[in-house]
């Protein structure tokens, strides 16, 4: 009997925890469809006439549209270059580098330890001197640190899981190293690699500090969103909520993939 009660209690607690954990996101989603009148009420409203005017404001606002466009350009190029540079390197690190492979991997990981300000401050001055301050090109260049290193870090285990027998059989057939990589290892590792790229995408899509310091005028979406509060005197909470929803959607699409990455990492002996 006592066990049954404690079991039900545990269930109730868990349901509450899940609700509380989701509440902030759901509340923002609701807020995005509320007119300001329905937001500025002493008692929070759960039922209201939904409106699309917040989203209309966003899509008609040139700053926000530009931010969205810049984000898409910068993030897709940075992630694509990260994949082109990082994936072949990861394959070689996983397969052909015995002596200095671990050192190289540690170097790649240690780049994640670097405080972002330590990158941002010197690059402001260097970019000003080179004349590429406040350009999308400059932003893509610094994002390569994140995309290349993260791609390598996550792709090495993906290639390590490719069965060696397949690669050895291909080598016996006379395939060159490049052919083995391109025709066998890459397609087999592709699902995990895709997960790795998605993770990189989310990291860069969400980045604020470097975008804020290095490209203030050619701002990406997070920078634009961060500055919305200062539009006019009245805080446009509905618009902010709608902007948040737009910002949140692309990463959330990939939630299933993130789950797959976690599953394969756990099976591979935990995160390293």
């Amino acid at each position: 009997m006592g066990r049954l009660i404690s079991k039900n209690l545990a269930r109730t607690v868990l349901v509450l925890v899940v609700l509380v954990a989701q509440m902030p996101i759901l509340w923002t989603l609701l807020g995005a469809f509320k007119s300001l009148r329905d937001i500025v009420t002493p008692v929070p409203k759960l039922f209201f006439t939904p409106t699309l005017e917040n989203f209309a404001t966003i899509l008609h606002n040139p700053t926000i549209r530009d931010g969205l466009l810049h984000s898409v350009i910068v993030v897709s190029i940075a992630v694509a270059l990260g994949a082109i540079l990082g994936i072949p390197a990861a394959h070689t690190l996983a397969r052909h580098a015995r002596r200095w492979g671990p050192d190289m991997q540690f170097f790649v990981l240690s780049l994640r330890f670097m405080p972002p300000v330590a990158i941002a401050i010197p690059f402001i001055v260097i970019y000003l001197d080179l004349g590429i301050y406040d350009t999308l090109f400059g932003l893509i260049l610094v994002y390569l640190v994140t995309t290349v290193s993260t791609t390598i870090w996550l792709a090495v285990p993906a290639f390590e899981r490719v069965p060696r027998e397949i690669e050895e059989a291909a080598a016996m057939e006379g395939c060159s190293d490049a052919e083995i990589f391109w025709r066998f290892s890459l397609p087999i590792a592709a699902p995990s690699l895709f997960g790795a790229l998605v993770f990189t995408f989310v990291l860069v899509w969400n980045e604020l500090l470097l975008a804020l310091t290095l490209a203030a005028q050619n701002a990406t979406l997070p920078v634009v969103a961060a500055s919305i509060t200062s539009l006019g005197k009245e805080v446009p909470w509905g618009v902010i909520n709608a902007a948040t929803v737009v910002l949140v959607l692309p990463p959330l699409v990939f939630i299933g993939l993130l789950m797959g990455v976690i599953n394969s990492m756990v099976r591979g002996g935990g995160p390293k």
Binding site: N206, L252, M259
Partner: peptide, 18 residues
Amino acid sequence: CFAFLAPVLLPRVAAAFI
């Protein structure tokens, strides 16, 4: 697990506003 993964995927700027 899906429900618990959602918050970490939010951009920090979005989480901050929320």
